[in-house]
Simulated scan of single mutants.
Amino acid sequence: MKAIVFDQPGDESQLYLAEVADPAPAPEAVLLHVAATALNRADLLQREGKYPVPPGANPILGLEVAGTVIEVGSTVTGFEVGDNVCALVNGGGYAQQIAVDHRMLLKLPEKLSFTKAAAIPEVFLTAYQALYWIARIQASETVLIHAGASGVGTAAIQLVRLAGGVPIVTASGHKHAALEELGAARCIDYRAEDFAEAVLDATDGRGADVILDFVGGPYLAQNLQCSAVDARIVSLAALGGARVADFSMAPFLRKRIQLTGTTMRSRTDEYRRRLTADFRRDIWPHFADGSLQAVVDTIYDWEEVAAAHRYMASNANVGKIVMTIGLD
Rank of each mutant, 00 (worst) to 15 (best):
V169P: 04
H102E: 04
P285I: 13
L39Y: 04
L224S: 03
A171L: 13
L61W: 01
S113K: 14
D328W: 11
D83M: 10
K50A: 03
Q293N: 08
A149S: 15
A308W: 14
E48M: 07
F79D: 05
A99P: 11
L125A: 10
K175I: 07
G217R: 05
K320W: 08
V166A: 00
A198Y: 03
F247R: 00
A42S: 14
I60D: 00
G148H: 13
P23Q: 09
I211R: 01
R161I: 13
S172Y: 15
P167W: 04
P54V: 00
R267W: 08
T263H: 12
R243V: 09
P285L: 03
R206S: 15
E181V: 14
T37R: 04
A87E: 00
A35C: 10
V20A: 04
V305N: 06
Y190M: 04
A308S: 11
A307V: 12
I145L: 02
K175T: 09
A250N: 00
S291I: 01
N315C: 05
R280L: 09
Y300L: 06
R136W: 02
L179Y: 06
A130Q: 01
E48K: 12
L239Q: 10
S172C: 03
L275I: 15
V199K: 00
Y94R: 07
R206A: 07
M249L: 15
L63N: 06
H286G: 09
R136K: 15
V210P: 03
R256L: 06
G173A: 09
A57I: 01
A95Y: 04
G153P: 11
V152Y: 12
V100E: 01
V295Y: 15
V123S: 15
F6D: 04
R47K: 10
R280K: 13
R232N: 06
Y51K: 01
R161A: 07
E110Y: 07
K255Y: 11
E28Q: 14
D204G: 11
R191F: 13
A119Y: 08
L63I: 05
Q97E: 13
G319K: 09
A139Y: 08
N90W: 06
Y51C: 03
A307W: 09
V53L: 00
E28C: 09
K111E: 13
F195I: 02
G91P: 09
L275T: 10
R232G: 02
F247N: 01
L44R: 03
A87F: 03
Y16M: 02
P251E: 00
R273P: 14
V322E: 06
I283E: 05
L212P: 12
D83N: 14
V5D: 01
K116A: 08
A18L: 05
G62S: 01
G93F: 02
